[in-house]
Design a protein around this nucleic acid. Structure first.
Lengths: 330, 330
DNA sequence: CTGTTAGCGCATTCAG
DNA sequence: CTGAATGCGCTAACAG
């Protein structure tokens, strides 16, 4: 020890009030002199909780998840924690690998936007002692916490809006990969159609875009939509990026939006309002979703903790890409 | 030990070929039976290099950085590493705090998009043994590696394009925060104007938007641009999000783009091509930038390593938001 | 090829 | 209030 003492230093760091302020100052001074840096590995080995939280998302570069991750980061920072951000690209193998690595790291917990709906790996991980919070996925009775958006409701909102505008022939463009959120939106779409007394087989056209489901793939999916007989008068897209691709595809076919075909996106990315036409879409509270997930995870450390779900409700943002059904169609 | 041996297990994990395949299998079996999980903390304490890399960025939710981060993540994953992603929001205090935490964690290194240009903290950190790679910031002779985009050239590209279209009165909308990349673009703008033999005081109008420099702030900054006498016929924005705000602001003032005023953005975010009018902008190789930074960091572990800089060149993407200068103006 | 041992840096005893 | 001693899980170096 530079000053005089030995592991009084430990107390200076962990129980500052137990040390006389004189020696405390002396020790603190010595620490900056020597350039002392705490060693997290040793602390953790000794049993201290890790400050690291794993965030395993489908794709951190996707604007939706990027904002969710930022919400997580902000809440974690308040608690002195930091996120490790991983993208699975909807690949189960990568998810498993990341979960394994995070477990070995002894992270405080994992915020997981799961690939499929077989959550055995997540449940097992939690059972072994690493808390897991599901993000953007319903709790589904599992012994885990979850922060989710009501995607069924999101699908319903889109359909209700289109039905009110007179549309009776609607396409749903979705990604080929099995993603729970997208499935739920599809479920909501069908539910709303049934509720309106419509025959799904005759009103709904589902088109899947190949992976990676980006702008170009959605552009090409337009061909299939336009080939459907009778031709849909409205298209619901599984996210805003796809909606942009669809707009491009329709332009390619010289189909005017919204005069001939209406479009509804999903996510309300920041550019949605500046597209031409401005995109009608479903807004999700991304930042708050991320915060909530982090909140749930941090709460797992508390004594009488019980698993719970925080569920957000999406909102329809009506803009210029949807109009009343053109006469004589559908 | 479940099977029979003790720290032969260590060899099974680290020197598999040194153990007879019989016992190896036996040990491996026992490991899954017991549900054995390596303890990274203990390995690290013992001297193993960490698999964690700190990524300290200005704002991970910003599409530019989100894609850079993804590039980092992809390269790191190939090396069995994972990124901790932190956002400073251009606050020195937060940067310092994060760097400290990452140092305590004993990360493999830090990929830093620095707040200002006073890089003492980064240099010190590196000197103490945590490698630092600058991201989106020039090396500037420092004893660090850097992965950067030539932002001066980006500014020049924008100006050269506008000058070729006849513009002689140009506004530059920038964020109030001191950000090196934006400063460099401004420098490039001035350099290109000087090179063309123009008087900067008479051709260039610089407007700063308050923090957080988002869409709304840029929208409001339009007022100042339009108030300038003579009124600029073109606006260069420090990023695409700002360009979107500027478009909105101009619409608010019933100024038609590009007929009355041309706009150049920066970043070429994925939606840039779908705006109305489609945005002329400067493209940066985001994903590759992130990859390169990670690459440089991983290379720091190699024996005869020498610091170096990887510099990318931006490209102008000409679209519909820029036109020839309207007659009789400027 | 397999078993034994020491110590990485810290926090938490217990004695002074 | 301060100083000395132990062990967290692992690996490297050596002994069998």
């Amino acid at each position: 020890m530079a000053g005089v003492s030995t592991s009084t230093v430990s107390n200076v760091l962990n129980n500052p009030d137990v040390v006389s302020s004189a020696t405390r100052h002396r020790v603190e001074e010595a620490m900056v002199q020597v350039g002392y840096v705490r060693n997290s590995a040793a602390r953790q080995l000794r049993g201290a909780p890790s400050v690291i939280v794993g965030c395993v998302l489908l794709d951190s570069a996707n604007p939706f998840f990027a904002e969710v991750a930022r919400g997580m980061e902000d809440r974690l920072a308040e608690a002195g924690c930091m996120p490790i951000v991983c993208s699975t690209d909807i690949r189960l193998g990568r998810e498993a690998r990341y979960l394994r690595m995070l477990e070995e790291l002894g992270v405080r917990g994992v915020l997981l936007s799961p690939v499929g709906s077989r959550l055995d790996a997540a449940v097992e991980l939690a059972r072994r002692g690493t808390p897991v919070v599901l993000v953007d996925h319903p709790r589904a009775g599992l012994p885990l916490c979850a922060a989710a958006v009501d995607n069924m409701r999101g699908g319903e909102l889109a359909v209700e809006h289109l039905l009110a505008r007179g549309h009776r022939r609607i396409a749903f463009i979705r990604c080929a990969a099995e993603v729970r959120t997208v499935d739920d939106r599809g479920e909501g779409i069908r539910h709303a159609l049934r509720t309106a007394g419509l025959d799904i087989a005759r009103t709904l056209v589902e088109v899947r875009t190949p992976q990676p489901a980006g702008l170009d793939e959605a552009d090409r999916a337009v061909d299939a939509v336009l080939a459907a007989v009778p031709r849909p008068t409205a298209i619901i897209c599984f996210n805003d990026m796809a909606a942009v691709g669809v707009m491009r595809g329709l332009r390619r076919h010289s189909v005017v939006v919204p005069d001939e075909i209406s479009i509804v996106g999903y996510d309300n990315v920041i550019f949605a309002s500046q597209l031409s036409p401005a995109l009608t879409t479903v807004r999700q509270p991304t930042h708050r979703l991320g915060r909530a997930a982090a909140e749930l995870l941090l709460a797992e450390a508390e004594p009488g903790h019980r698993h719970r779900e925080i569920r957000f409700t999406p909102e329809l943002v009506v803009r210029a890409s949807t109009a009343v059904r053109p006469d004589g169609v559908g």
